[in-house]
Design a protein around this nucleic acid. Structure first.
Lengths: 177, 177
DNA sequence: CAGTATCCTGTCCGATACTG
DNA sequence: CAGTATCGGACAGGATACTG
């Protein structure tokens, strides 16, 4: 799990997302292989709100049980959740976030904040609050060095040290910048 | 476009994502209807890097031309891109980000930052840099009031003023918190 | 309740061919 | 080059039925 990618699998080998992510060696693609699916985001949302059980996910999200089974399995396989029996006879499981899974929360927050920023405060259906003060949080994605929002045009993507040929080509002179 | 949701459409009415987003009245779902697809993220990435043309997207992303056509159309319909002829005879178009489209960039940055944080600096294939200083940016999602990262457990989601029954139910006493 | 297994439909998406 | 139209296979995902 050091690379953060799905570890095992049955004998079958589908998972187009994984292949695409590695082929592209791009952090965005890798991130998409984790949070690029509706159900995954919705399940994570539930988890961040403290829900842990199959029927809770099913009720909150409203997906079919077979889909939920397969999504949960994928999340466990990829190290985002762990499945744990919390009682025997009958055996009952709970699904809880790993540290790795918790690390995804800022992405969800950024997405929710993006949408809420388009709405007047009184039109927001879900908000982030500071339990210390009770006040609504206004999240921002910033550069930790300067504190500036990353939407500032001075910040641009470019090839990193481990860039492959495709990535280098992408950032060679010639794009519209 | 004030609500940021797709405006028009041909006579046909597919777009399952839109329906789901509105039904759920959840900012995460709405965000997912915009950035929940691989191709959309990849196209946006290209746009943020200054690419504007059909063949550039095709070469960088490697998707089929028919898919690219339909993804671009969706992005134009949803107000993320505008299609503009930059020359006549033969007519050639470019696709450029609207302000609304540009507002999505922090989400992409948060995703890339999430992945890069798992890698040693020398293992990163793509990074964000400050063109002022030339240094790599370490982005963070923070609360603008306190400056604390939103990963801090004091920050939690809860129902907002416009929460509907489903959202209220979700945050009533009873989840695992 | 907590799932698993099976079926079936719609849609994603690449391949191919065509147009100005 | 910058697309559009059509075809067909693979798979996502709901509905339903079954199990301990």
């Amino acid at each position: 799990m050091s690379t953060g990618v799905r570890s095992n699998e049955s004998q079958e080998e589908p998972v187009s997302a994984r292949v695409r992510a590695e082929d592209r060696e791009c952090p965005l693609s890798t991130a998409m292989s984790y949070v690029g699916e509706w159900w995954t985001i919705l399940i994570l949302h539930d988890c961040f709100d403290g829900y842990t059980r199959f029927d809770q996910f099913e009720a909150n999200i409203g997906l079919s049980s077979s889909m939920l089974t397969s999504r949960l399995k994928a999340l466990v396989d990829s190290g985002v959740l762990v499945k744990r029996a919390y009682q025997e006879r009958p055996v009952r499981h709970e699904y809880v976030l790993t540290d790795f899974g918790r690390s995804l929360r800022p992405i969800l927050v950024a997405m929710a904040a993006w949408r809420n920023a388009q709405l007047a405060p009184e039109d927001r259906a879900m908000i982030l609050v500071d339990t210390g003060t009770g006040r609504e949080v206004e999240p921002a994605v910033i550069d930790t060095a300067t504190g500036l929002p990353v939407s500032d045009p001075r910040f641009v993507f470019t090839a990193g040290p481990a860039a492959g040929e495709q990535m280098l080509e992408r950032y060679r002179r010639g794009n519209g910048r």
